[in-house]
Amino acid sequence: MLQRLEHLLGIEDLTREQISFILDQAAPFQEFQKHPLKKLATLRGKTVALAFFENSTRTRISFATAAARLGADTMNLQAESSSLKKGESLLDTIRTLEAMRPDGIVIRHSSSGAPQLIADRLGMPVVNAGDGTHEHPTQALLDALTIRDRKGKLDGLNLTILGDILHSRVARSNIFLLSKFGVNITLCGPTMWVPRGLESLAPNVRRVSRIEDALKTADAIIVLRVQTERLHEPAIATEEYILGYQLTPARLKLARPGALVLHPGPMIRGLEIDAAVADGPQSCVLDQVTNGLAIRMALLYHLVGGAAVEAPPAKEKPKDSTKD
């Protein structure tokens, strides 16, 4: 029996079995995206609050679409228009949302740990849609699903993550998740973004400074966005980054044949990734988007839809007694 999942706050504390369960549960929702009629009534009458205290386009749209396709309604709170701008505290804003009686809350916040803070105080499921430099669990889940679908497994694969690992919650969640599945992880980027000690985040993680060495034997490569707002501290020139770390077609050839290229988006062509790679046959970026919907539908179904995430019983009871 699986440990019941009440919230999704991060990957670090999940077991391999819980993660596998979520990935497996995404499969029917992947198939659902191909239906001509993409509307279920499964969460009819439920409301999901989308509290995005930090700007987000793709993650917010993905959660909103996932909720809509399950039949749930959404309440939207966005950074630009929120009362936060007027000086309200996070907890006051959240309590106001809670008073409108949503059935679950999806939160993105620039402070690490904000979702945990809220989960400790609210009696409803909380889904972390990215908190500070801590975790972005749904991104890691959709990345794992994308890799597992294409490669047929995760165990024993070699993964390289390129870019600003230190400030990336995407990288952290991915490292936590994939290392639980025996993936060998190589981190590569400018030293100030891949400082010594980062390899101790999880087992099977190593740091490599030259991109050529990092790409050798890679089965999958996650290219992180260069957060241009961080380029000035401590200074690295854009040209220098491109020269040293851009994923180009020539560099991709160093990886294993058929190595996958993933990017959490938004992608800056010509900076961290060459356009030919971004649009090439090894690129999975659009699969990632579709898989994100499936993962988020599966999570909302299990967290908001009812009670628990549990393993299927070894043998189902005759269904005329359970199903009807």
């Binding site: 499969a27 499964t42 599966a298 009670a307 199903k323």
Partner: peptide
């Protein structure tokens, strides 16, 4: 996903394709 008793059946049933 089409059941009308999801909120009353206890543990959320596993979805299949």
């Amino acid at each position: 996903l089409y059941r009308d008793d999801l909120s009353t059946v206890g543990p959320q049933p596993v979805v299949h394709s």
